[in-house]
Structures are given as C-alpha cells and as structure tokens.
Design a protein around this nucleic acid. Structure first.
Lengths: 214, 214, 214, 214
DNA sequence: AATGAATGAGAATTCATTCAT
DNA sequence: AATGAATGAATTCTCATTCAT
C-alpha cells in the first residue's frame, strides 16, 4: 500500500518536474535529463515510470487538465448559485494567482502549440474545451433567463467568453507587463457589462457581481 | 538587381516551405530536410540562404507578421472610415478565409507555443500585439465618442476584443468542427452588440455594421 | 544441508528459465528480467545466485553440457556393448526427442554463435567436442577391428560422424520442415552403411543395427 | 554514375567493416561505432547508408550468401563436368582458404546463432540451404547413375554431405588446432569413399577424384 | 532470502551544419 | 550557386547491477 502510494508520488514528482522543465526550457527543449535532474532522480527512473517521453508528456497534460478542472470546480462550489455569481466565479478561477501565472500559461501554450500533431493532446484539449463550452452555455442561458434579457445567443456568448479568457492568457504570455490579472478580469467584465448591465454593469469587482446577483 | 530579386525569391520559397512544413509536421518536427524537399532544393542551400535553422524560423515568423499586417491594412483601407466600420473590417480581416484557416492558425499557435523561450519571437509577437492593442484602443475611443457612449474604457475593450479573436483562433485549432469562421465572427459581434447597440446591435452581418456606421 | 539443496534448486530453476528465455527471445535479447519472470522470481535474486549475467550464462552452458553428457552416457549404457551398437546408440542419443528438439538445438546454436568471444564457452565446448571425438574415434577403431575393415582412418571417420550430427542439427534449426529426426538419423546411417556395410548396410532401423551387431 | 558507384562502394566498405567487426568483437558486441571506426568513417554515415543496424546486419548476411554462392559457382565452373568432379570441387570450394577460414566461419556461426529470432536471416539461410540441398541431391543422383550404384538415396546422402561440411566448420571454430582444412576435406572424402569407392576410394586428393572421374 | 526501485553507463539514432565537388 | 555526402554532438531508451527495505 505504502509502496503504491510512493509510486504515485514519484509519478507526480516527475510530472511536476516536467511542468517546471517545460516552463524553464521550452517544450521542444526539455530533455529527460532535465526532468530527472529537476526531480533529483536519475534518467533511468523517468523511463521506468513512464514508458517514453511521449507518455510523460501526455501524463503531464492530463495532470494539467485535471488540475484545472478541479480548481474550477472548487471555485464554483464556493461561489453563489446564481448564474451571474457562477460566471463571475469562473472569471476569478481563470485568473487566480495559482493558475493564471506565467509558469502555467507558458506550459499551456506550449501544449497548445503542439496539439495539432499529437492526437492524445488534441483529445484532451478538445474534451476540456467542449466541456467548458457546454457548461458556460448553460450558465449564460440561465443568466439570460434570470435577467430577462432578449436577443442574446447563449452559445455565442459562451464561446466568446471562453475565447477571451484564452486570448488574455496569450496576452499575459506575450505582454506580461501590459496584461496583469486584474486588467484581464476587468476586460472580461467590461464586455459582460455591455450585455448584462444589471449583473456586471456597476463595478467590475468580483464580489460585487456575485453579490448583486444574489 | 535581378540577382538580388532571385535571391529574395529563393528566400520566400524557403519561408513558404517552412510554413508548409510546420503546418504538416509540427514545430519541433520540421527538419531542414523537409523544408528543402518541399522547396525542391537541397539541404545545403537552406543553410546558404539562412545562416541557421533558427534564422529561418525567425524569418518565417517575420514573414507571418508582415503578411498579417499587410492583410489588415488592406482590409481596413477598403472599409468605411467610421470607427464602427473599421472595427468591423478588423473582424473580417481576422477571420478572412486566407488567414483564419487551419494551416495559418496552426502555424501561429506553433510559434506562440515557442515564443516564451525565443527572445526574437517574443519581440516580434509583442510588437505586433502592442501595435494592434494601440490601434484598436484608438478605434474603440473613436467609436465611443462617435456613438456618445459612457463609462466604457476603450483600452479594456480593445484588449478583450483582440484577446477574443486570438482565443477563437485557438477554438478553431482545437475544435474545428464546432468553431467555423462565421460562428467566430458572430461571437465577436454579439459581444460588441452589448456595448455598442447602435453600431453592432441589429444585424450580425459585416456589411450592415459597416454600412450603418457609414 | 536442505538449505544447500534449496539453493541448488533455485540455481537450477534459474538455469532452466535461462534456457527457456534464450529459446524464446534469443541470446542477445534475453534480459535478466525475462529470466526472473520466467522463474517467478525477482531480478535481484538472479544477481544473488549468480554473480553476474555472464556467470549465469556460463552456468547455463555448463548445465547443457552436463545434461548432454549424462544423456549420452545413459543411452550408451542401455545399448549393446559392440562398437556398432554403441555407435548406433550414439545416433539415437543425438537425435532423441528430448535433445534434438527445436528448443535445445536453438539454444546450442545460440551458444556456439557466441563461443568465439567467450573463453569460458570456448573451453566448455572444446572439452565436450574433444571428449566425444576421442570416444568416437575409439568406437570407430573397435568397429573397424570387429568388422575386419581396412584402409579406414578411425579419427577421420569419427570427426566426420560428429560433424554430420552437428550439421544436421543446424539443418533442423534452419529448415525444420525438411529435416526431421528420422531423416537425420537415416542420413547418418546411409553414410555409415557405405563404410560398414555389414553393420549398417541392410536396414536403417536403429534396433536392427544394434541388434545385428550384438 | 560515378556517384552511384561511390555509394555502392561505401555500402560494401561498411559491410566489410561489419564482417570484420563481428569477427573481432562478436555479434552482440559489434557497435555501430566499431563498424564506423573500422571503415574510417563517422557513426552518422552508417545510419545514412543503412536505415538501421538491423538493416546493416541483414545486408551483411546477404553479402555473405551472395559471396558464398559466387565462390561455389566459380569453383564448380572450373572443375570437370562429371558428378564426381563436381562433388569434389564442392568440397574444395567449402574448404577453400578464402572461405573456410577463422574469420568467415566465425561470422557464419554468429549469424546462425541469431537466425532463429530474425525472420530475414532465417529466410536467407533457408534459401541457401535449400538451394544447395537441391543441387547436391542432383549431383549425387548423377554420381549414382554414372557409377552404377544401387540402394543409395541421393537426397539422404546430399543432406549428410552438406551437414558434415557445416559441422566441420563448427569443429574449425571450436577446435581450430585439431581441425584444419586438410583434415576436414579428408573426413568428407573418407565418407564418400565408403559409398562411392570407384570415385573417392583411392586417394583423397581432389585432383585425383576429379581426374579419375573424367 | 527476497524484493524491486533506483542508478547510470552505454548504444542506436537523429539531424543541423559543413564542405568538397 | 547548388549539391548531398559526411560529420559528430546530442538525445532517448535499455538494462545489468546495486541496495535499502
């Protein structure tokens, strides 16, 4: 039992080291040796826990996806149940210090850059994207109903909302000086304020939006 | 002179081959040999026209940037002069069949994925991003003035607008079935309609927005 | 004492597993891990009972040699005492189902293939070869005397006899469909029939040769 | 044209180096680096001319087979046309200094030792073996007819003849001191003398056998 | 005794770059 | 200018051996 746990711990250790390695050296430049060194282990052990470098990379992306989903789930659970509160919590989740930081954004973009040629990456990313598109569409639909809005297509809004967040991450990657987390959140809320003035119109603060909807 | 032209033609030929190569094989898997073969030339000649593979890659990104800027400039020149018309033309430019296609989006994301560790990439991307952020902020400011809107921060809106476009490209990359060019454009316009109902509120068609503003 | 026996039993178990492993995977492809798995033991234990993989391989060849010698000895003991009967029994021994089968022949040739560069293999094989050359020369000499033959060099015949058997094993390895045990035995006897018509001339059956000589 | 020739020459050079390498270091111990060094080239070039080490090994065996077949063909062409002369020439061919030497025999046994697990080796060896079995059976049949012999099965004799030669090569490998080329040839002829006294009975010299048959 | 995770030297293979032709 | 054979550093993966438990 403790041995099984130790094995899983080693895997996590190597995955974390891989994330660090990608962040530090770049996707096409992390070597197995870098990962091993970062984990304080020998190169042989990497190929012992992961059949190949590819398998390690896939496991790493899977880890990122799971971690992101868990993070979002937890954030949403802590937020108010109204659609507005949930959407606002989503913004907070997406720009939380723990996730919307240089290291994570860097690594996510590294994976997205390679996704096109790696079916396993592709699947993981597509599933995540689809799942969020669906739940955001749902949230938007509820928001439209709750707020009595008209002529707004929830799917279109959800898509734009998700896209804006991914694009703002890219901004943080490319122009870290210009785009900080607060600016990014304010951008998203500014757009939502246009569509949903009652819920997002007054102040761009997260608590406020959640509060006003409650 | 004609020798210089021929030289430049060869360089273009190799850059195009590089774009094809990245699109087909992936950033970390294009070999000099692939590029040479695609261009119908020998490997030796690639290192003759470009000092190194790195230099070729930088030249390729530069080409993409220049091409995108030229494309936008041309599209904007053809559009009405009002802020709304210009912004709408920008949407059309960003989702033109010639640029928002699988090949180009793939290659752009490949470069963005690597940008973090390549100062030259970084510079090119940051400059492009800054330049568009500035001109979009300007356009948004004019739109706000022209439309008599209040409480809208043009910089925030410009940032979100640009981000949404990049994010929708990612959608096209990851979920090509769900996100086509028309859906993407409709998404952007749906958001603008919230903020600028007079210019983007009625119909989602590009010509209409441009026309109503003219 | 029982501990010593257990130890010896483990060694035998590992040697058998090695033979199986070589037969299944090939000499240069059997891993310690394969041997351990086949024996139902851990890799660590292999290096505990045998100082090194090399030592295991040497012990395995020693086992094969001993086993072959024991087998021949037993077969000869059961046969008639005449030279002809002994020689014929030798043929039977060499093509007994227990020894001239695909697995054993495979493994013997695997060792012979490596013999050249392993002094310990070399020694074992040379000793076995020399010992059989001597005893066969002796048997041939007796056969020549007993049969009153002339102008036959027993050493030359013994050498050819032994060689033919090894060569027929190679046939069984390379062309298993064409060369079965019975064909092989018939081949050897056909040659002996030319030299020793009285003892091997009439019928090719083993019992007959042994019997007619008795 | 000269470039094509040079390419073929390089391949031959590498194949020869491989044969040397196997002879010197052993089948499972020749490294690409050894081959490259023996050929006075860099390691990269080996993988340039041969897709993989495996491919190099297969090409090497093919070379050995071709070379052996050519050698036999040439020897037979120079010999008398009678069956006896041809068979005798075959013995000479098999024990010619150029082919039945330590280096070649070593390498042949190295390949035979691995044949079992390499389908390509297997095919090459089986084809060679079958082809020689057929032509020797044919030669034996003619010898039987020409000599008016009875009760001799040509296929059985051919098989034993070929086997004896392979087995004598093994002797030369394992007991080089005891088994020289002349002894080996004398062994084969001693056996043939029993079956075909008129053609192989008097003296074991090659010329004589060919001559007496002519 | 026994286990199997961990080590690390060693090998095949890849590929950007060079350079003789 | 152009070619493509040749180089060799770099990287992944393998596996005999060790050693803490």
């Amino acid at each position: 039992m403790s041995r099984e746990l130790a094995k899983e711990a080693r895997r996590q250790q190597l995955i974390e080291a891989t994330i660090d390695g990608i962040a530090r050296k770049g996707f096409s430049d992390v070597k197995i040796a870098d990962v091993a060194e970062a984990a304080g282990l020998s190169v042989g052990i990497v190929n012992f826990y992961f059949k190949s470098k590819d398998a390690l990379l896939i496991a790493t992306l899977k880890h990122l996806v799971d971690d992101y989903e868990r993070h979002v789930k937890e954030t949403l659970a802590r937020a108010g149940k109204s659609a507005a509160a949930q959407i606002d919590a989503m913004i907070e989740a997406d720009f939380a210090r723990t996730h919307a930081n240089r290291k994570y954004v860097t690594v996510w973009y590294a994976f997205w850059g390679e996704t096109r040629w790696r079916p396993e990456f592709s699947k993981l990313c597509a599933d995540l994207s689809t799942s969020f598109q669906e739940s955001m569409t749902d949230a938007m639909r509820r928001l439209i109903e709750e707020g009595g809005y008209r002529d707004i297509d929830p799917a279109l809004i959800a898509r734009g909302f998700n896209a804006m967040i991914d694009g703002l991450w890219l901004d943080m990657l490319i122009n870290p000086k210009q785009t900080d987390r607060e600016t990014a959140k304010a951008s998203v809320r500014a757009f939502l304020a246009g569509l949903f003035p009652n819920e997002f119109g007054r102040r761009p603060a997260a608590n406020d939006a959640a509060g006003s909807a409650a």
